[in-house]
């Protein structure tokens, strides 16, 4: 059951054919599109524990003259699995900020080459954590429904977005397999089990407004569990230095996510001094997949303005 490739795809350390980059002590699944000397747009996926497969619409930005970089974060997607101890220390999120910093350094050919970040959900939180530490390195930022920029905000959002309906088919679909596949330590099996929760998140009538499932490669179950535990234990605040980032930020929220909405978007984005709020129509939280038709022109206009 835990044999590589049996239930979840092989990762970059198991399949040499996958595009990868050894960076900051790990091996990341990385792919790029476009001219490497163009302004760089790094796509930062959600989770924690997700992957960039549902963000691949963003290759459209190549036609706008961007060099688009996709990467699966440390330990998740098709990136190499790491031991859970990496995510247990207080500075676990710093590891992810450092990975992103190493990517910026790797791809930026000259100091004048502009770097943009587009983050979705947890990816928008991580992008903000990066800007909070390195505001001078980023020329523009697109944020799509970050849960919050502090742990209090995020846990508040999660309590609304992941509301459990105790007698629902969705909950049953997510947890019933736990009595069948139980008590196994192998990360491959934990990753496989985690995939059953996508049916809960995207079940009919879900709070976050997704019309169905969206493609993914591998859920990083250990990354998800440990980073949530880490946040509960140590908390986080990605906002103290955001006031120094005077560049306009494009902040997106979706029309159908009942747990988000304009009010929460105003609250979460408030630490940034210069924000352009936009509602993405006809989609829920997974707007970079389901809402691309409306999202793309908004994001392209913003990025082209700052390019």
């Amino acid at each position: 059951m835990s044999e590589p490739g049996a239930l979840v795809p092989r990762t970059v350390d198991q399949d040499p054919a996958l595009p990868s980059l050894s960076i900051n002590g790990t091996i990341l699944h990385v792919e790029t599109h476009g001219n490497p000397s163009d302004p760089i747009l790094i796509m930062v996926h959600g989770g924690p524990g997700g992957d960039y497969r549902s963000l691949l619409n963003a290759t459209d930005f190549v036609q706008d003259g961007f060099f688009v970089v996709f990467y699966d974060q440390r330990g998740t997607g098709l990136s190499k699995r790491e031991d859970k101890s990496q995510y247990e220390n207080e500075d676990a999120v710093q590891l992810y900020i450092n990975d992103l910093d190493a990517l910026v350094t790797h791809f930026q050919q000259t100091a004048s080459q502009k770097v943009f970040l587009m983050g979705h959900s947890w990816g928008a939180m991580l992008s903000t954590a990066f800007v909070n530490q390195h505001p001078e390195k980023i020329s523009g930022l697109v944020l799509a429904e970050p849960g919050g920029f502090t742990w209090d905000q995020t846990s508040d959002y999660l309590s609304r977005s992941n509301k459990i309906k105790f007698f629902s088919e969705a909950l049953n679909d997510a947890v019933f397999p736990e009595q069948i596949i139980a008590g196994r330590d192998e990360q491959e099996i934990l990753d496989y089990k985690a995939s059953f929760f996508t049916t809960f998140e995207n079940a009919p009538g879900n709070t976050i407004g997704n019309p169905g499932s969206y493609p993914f490669w591998r859920n990083g179950a250990v990354v998800f569990e440990k980073l949530i535990e880490n946040a509960e234990k140590y908390n986080f605040d990605f906002t103290p230095n955001l006031h120094s980032f005077s560049t306009k930020v494009l902040f997106l929220y979706s029309e159908w996510n009942q747990a988000y909405g304009s009010e929460w978007a105003v609250t979460v984005s408030s630490p940034y001094p210069n924000v352009q709020l936009e509602r993405v129509k006809n989609c829920g939280h997974e707007m970079l997949y389901f809402g691309w038709t409306d999202l793309y022109p908004k994001a392209a206009a913003y990025l082209n303005e700052l390019k």
Binding site: G5, P9, Q179, I180, A182, R184, I189, F216, W217
Partner: peptide, 20 residues
């Protein structure tokens, strides 16, 4: 659906998958 996302995923019988 998982087969759609990962066509190489292996269907079939698996031995003991755990306990509670």
């Amino acid at each position: 659906l998982m087969k759609e996302y990962y066509p190489q995923i292996r269907d079939g019988w698996y031995k003991a998958s755990g306990g509670t």
